[in-house]
């Protein structure tokens, strides 16, 4: 996947059963973001794989003041890429069990 400069990873072991998972996001390469990333921390949050949309969470982060509106797409894409990978891994392990 394209390097967005934003890292998103699992904040807990994926047991492949819960739809809600904990994710952790942080800026790895500030040059990739157009706006100035104001926080030096990692943001941990719960995400429901079945019902939630990555871009909505990205907008909530903007609304909370973590990022500027101009970076909402790059944040949303970063979350979407990770969520896609998690879903793919789950499907793969489910088909391996069958």
């Amino acid at each position: 996947a394209e390097d967005t400069g934003v890292r998103v990873e699992l904040a807990e072991e994926d047991d492949c059963t819960k739809s809600s998972i904990a994710l952790r996001l942080w800026v790895e390469d500030q040059k990739k973001l157009k706006g100035k990333y104001k926080d030096s921390g990692a943001i941990e949050f719960a995400f429901d794989l079945d019902t939630e949309v990555p871009e909505t969470v990205a907008q909530e982060m903007v609304d909370s003041g973590f990022f500027l509106e101009i970076d909402v797409k790059i944040v949303g894409k970063s979350i979407r890429d990770r969520v896609s990978l998690i879903k793919w891994r789950r499907q793969r392990s489910a088909s391996a069990r069958n």
């Binding site: 030096s40 941990e44 949050f45 719960a46 909370s64």
Partner: peptide, 27 residues
């Protein structure tokens, strides 16, 4: 510092904590 800051927004809880230096890319 291990201090974590909790931000509630639109019903979601964001927990902000420092990123270890080792996880940051060289600028």
């Amino acid at each position: 510092s291990s201090a974590a800051q909790v931000v509630h927004s639109a019903g979601r809880r964001f927990i902000v904590s420092p990123v270890p230096e080792s996880r940051l890319r060289e600028q």
